[in-house]
Design a protein around this nucleic acid. Structure first.
Lengths: 144, 144
DNA sequence: GAAGATTGAGAACTCAATCTTC
DNA sequence: GAAGATTGAGTTCTCAATCTTC
């Protein structure tokens, strides 16, 4: 197999460029406001959703599609900044439970409007609803 | 601005996941054949297209959307593997000209079928032409 | 032995500073 | 002073090895 249609190559290239472009926009927006990178937001969001039960690192791993060591090191840094807490897990002594802190909640709430504004500018204002619907449908097929 | 439609959030999340999924597939396929990572292929492809004139690093920078220091270090490693050559530029003594080597050509030609097969499996077999057309059109709007 | 989590060592990335030539 | 390219120092990422508990 050495042949690939030009159309498929275009699909891949456009997908790569678009992702790169949007991710850059988000990261730069956060940086310009002296806020943590997007990866931290993802963690804080999941922890805030998890509520009083907190989350196990391996659950975070699945939700965020990060490797195990990635979680360990990311959680480490976020904890050192005071935005989350690690607690030993009573029912499974191998494990931990992670909780968002007050401070973490505040940062998360500061990050959201920046994040949202960027996506609004770069996606919502450029595609109407029906185009977004189609985009989601097509991308979903690629994930199957 | 703190509101963002669920649809737009879905668009962004799907885009991220799809990109992640496809990129992983390509990188793993290359790794499993003991071939260099995708970034090397991009460089080698551009150099092979450039032909006898070679390419200036800053041109590569623009084509690949990499920062200047990224190019320097990437080119460094590829040169050490013997897949490209740096030459001082006669007409602009600040600059260089990069050329692909014989060996580089061979590796590039080994990489292509792996790369192509992965994209074929993960894109071409999952979307028909009209869907790909629409995908490209919509993504193009996001890049404007 | 497998699952949850961490860690050491090496590779890659990032930022700002640097050097040379324009 | 700006453009082309590189580099030092610090940070982050990756792989495999490790430790503890299941």
């Amino acid at each position: 197999m050495t042949h690939l249609s030009n159309l498929t190559q275009s699909s891949w290239i456009k997908l790569t460029r678009t992702h790169h472009h949007l991710l850059n926009a988000v990261e730069e927006a956060l940086k310009s406001e002296d806020l943590p990178p997007l990866g931290w937001y993802d963690v804080l969001l999941e922890l805030s959703r998890a509520g009083n039960n907190g989350l196990r690192p391996f659950e975070l791993e699945q939700k965020l599609l990060l490797p195990q060591y990635g979680i360990s090191r990311l959680v480490d840094k976020i904890e050192k900044s005071g935005y989350l807490q690690r607690q030993r897990c009573p029912d499974d002594k191998r494990g931990l439970r992670l909780f968002i802190t007050e401070q973490g909640s505040k940062v998360q709430q500061k990050m959201w409007p920046i994040y949202a504004t960027t996506l609004n500018t770069n996606i919502e204002q450029k595609l109407d609803r029906s185009e977004q619907d189609i985009l989601v449908t097509i991308l979903s097929k690629l994930l199957r």
